[in-house]
């Protein structure tokens, strides 16, 4: 039970860690100063959430575990994030689309996690939901701007949606830990809001004049630690210091 809770927390937190890391790579390279600052804000929010989750997970794990050992010292196969969030910053359309497809899920998820029987998780969710509402509104607005903006922006964002769509079903395919936690009233049964998710996504895409993909082919594996090739490189950067200089204070 304790182990499943630990795994469950990692599953939630790793999404924020990897997306935060991706957005952090953008800092200083955004299309305008205002957007640069906004993307960094989102990254900062996500890392803040990550720290709360990992501190809790470290307490559960006991021993030498710390927020940093959990963040930096796992092997690639031990990261539990969904494939979507590790996808690269191909261009601004991909960055926003990746965020949008995740943010809508994240908000609906946290709205439910707020009612968890686990007080710590409920508290983290209650604090994070305000931030994530802003993330969702930021990415939704940009979906509309790009979709209904110029011909080029429309083409780019449609391309990003078509390409990233295959990673959107994984949210709703529960792992063993997720099933057990949902049953115990601690976790969220994500299948309960799949229809709401689809509806929210469709509403924004419609306003953005983007066609909702109909491809029936989806990818999964991140939650079980089977990732795309992109994650390894992201981790090499992220873990570099901790791996090169083990057991030091920074």
């Amino acid at each position: 039970m304790k182990d499943q809770l630990y795994q469950y927390i990692l599953g939630i937190a790793d999404n924020s860690l990897i997306l935060g890391q991706r957005l952090g790579q953008l800092c200083g390279h955004g299309p305008s100063l205002e957007v640069d600052i906004a993307c960094t804000n989102i990254s900062l929010d996500l890392f803040g959430q990550v720290r709360s989750y990992y501190q809790y997970a470290a307490k559960l794990a006991g021993g030498d575990a710390s927020e940093d050992s959990i963040a930096f010292l796992r092997k690639e196969r031990e990261y539990r994030n969904v494939l979507l969030v590790e996808q690269p910053n191909t261009d601004f359309a991909y960055i926003i689309t990746r965020g949008f497809l995740f943010d809508v899920y994240h908000e609906l998820f946290l709205e439910r996690l707020m009612h968890s029987k686990d007080e710590t998780l409920a508290a983290i969710a209650a604090k994070s939901i305000k931030e994530v509402r802003y993330h969702r509104s930021f990415s939704s607005e940009w979906m509309k701007r790009m979709g209904a903006g110029t011909e080029e922006s429309h083409r780019r964002v449609q391309d990003a949606v078509d390409s990233l769509w295959r990673y959107t079903k994984e949210f709703f395919q529960p792992t063993e830990a997720e099933k057990a936690m949902a049953e115990a009233g601690i976790g969220v049964d994500t299948s309960s809001f799949k229809a709401t998710y689809d509806q929210h996504i469709a509403e924004v895409l419609q306003e953005a004049t983007i066609v909702v993909p109909t491809s029936p082919y989806f990818q999964r594996g991140g939650k079980e630690g089977v990732h795309t090739e992109h994650l390894g490189y992201l981790l090499s950067d992220m873990q570099y210091m901790q791996r090169t200089y083990p057991n030091m204070n920074w």
């Binding site: 890392f47 720290r51 963040a71």
Partner: peptide
């Protein structure tokens, strides 16, 4: 991307911001 701890990463991001 390479900051050695989460605390330092957050502080550096905030500084650059």
């Amino acid at each position: 991307s390479r900051a050695p701890s989460l605390r330092r990463k957050v502080a550096l991001l905030a500084k650059v911001q």
